[in-house]
């Protein structure tokens, strides 16, 4: 549980960080909250020669409302998300989800950028970002680009990030006023990854679902958008038969691994239940 030796860098600007990561190549890793990388280093599953600590870059922090979008700097911590009135007002599901991540100590250090950029299928924010239709700003040696969350995740720990690129901010469209939302996460204990979790954002009109997005956490090597399940509920009043169909459609795209949280069959089964519960609770919250 002792990491190998490494050089430590603390750039003061995004440009300097990119320059460092580009010039140091594969042997350099950016460091955000460190909750994934540092345990990996202690177990020597990762042995980077260089750590590029992003904590010195003021530009990577902050939460701003800009018209109908909210922009969040990558180095904003989960704790700062929870403390933000803007998040509570515009994106209550983000507040709800951040509260389900680990414990306060972890949330003081853990960042939203690290959570979404690492590509860990156990992380909660990626599926939520897909559900919300968020996009990520990636900055690298060849300039900046925007990638939508739903196209960012390619496999476990594989993302659209190119060598030398850093995810610098997240832009989230603010859901319609009166929308319903829920993040249902089954976990064994505080600090655990989800056995299965489902994020739902929906709107209702005249007692029927007008729009719906469903995201799934930790039931596949990447976060998932359950588009078929979402399509099935639109236009319905979320009657029991529809809920059952939607859950079944969501379960159909799940491919979790068996682990200490349970066998594959169990994780898919409770994944379906999380979808049902999230839909039901989200609908009840619509105004």
């Amino acid at each position: 549980m002792i990491p190998g030796s490494f050089s430590y860098h603390r750039p003061a600007s995004v440009a300097d960080a990119i320059k460092l990561l580009s010039s140091l190549g594969d042997e350099a890793r950016p460091l955000a909250g460190g909750h994934s990388l540092i345990p990996m280093m202690k177990l020597r599953l990762a042995s980077p020669d260089h750590l590029v600590d992003l904590h010195g870059i003021a530009a990577l922090k902050g939460i701003h409302r800009d018209g109908d979008r909210v922009s969040i700097g990558a180095m904003t911590t989960q704790h700062e998300l929870l403390a933000s009135d803007e998040i509570a007002r515009s994106l209550p599901i983000l507040h709800e989800t951040a509260l389900l991540i680990a414990d306060p100590q972890v949330r003081y250090m853990g960042t939203i950028g690290g959570n979404v950029a690492n590509g860990d299928p156990g992380n909660d924010m990626p599926a939520l970002m897909m559900t919300l239709g968020a996009s990520y700003r990636l900055e690298g040696p060849n300039g900046a680009r925007e990638v939508v969350a739903s196209e960012f995740y390619q496999g476990a720990y594989f993302t659209a990030l190119e060598p030398g690129e850093i995810l610098t901010s997240i832009s989230i469209p603010v859901p319609a006023a009166g929308h319903g939302y829920a993040y249902e996460k089954l976990k064994r204990k505080i600090g655990d990854y989800a056995t299965a979790a489902a994020a739902v954002v929906l709107t209702m009109s005249g007692g029927k679902v007008a729009s719906c997005a469903i995201g799934l956490t930790n039931v596949h090597e990447t976060p998932l958008l359950a588009t078929e399940a979402a399509r099935l509920v639109v236009g319905t009043s979320l009657d029991p038969a529809t809920l059952k169909q939607a859950a079944a459609a969501a379960v159909a795209i799940m491919a979790p691994a068996a682990d200490a949280r349970g066998p594959v069959e169990y994780r898919k089964h409770v994944g379906g239940i999380m979808v049902t519960r999230a839909l039901t609770r989200a609908a009840a919250l619509t105004k």
């Binding site: 414990d103 204990k189 200490a260």
Partner: peptide
């Protein structure tokens, strides 16, 4: 051993 850390070896917190 598949339960070699507190991620998998159940050590309840005050919440549980």
């Amino acid at each position: 051993v598949v339960t070699g850390s507190f991620m998998d070896f159940f050590m309840p917190t005050a919440v549980e």
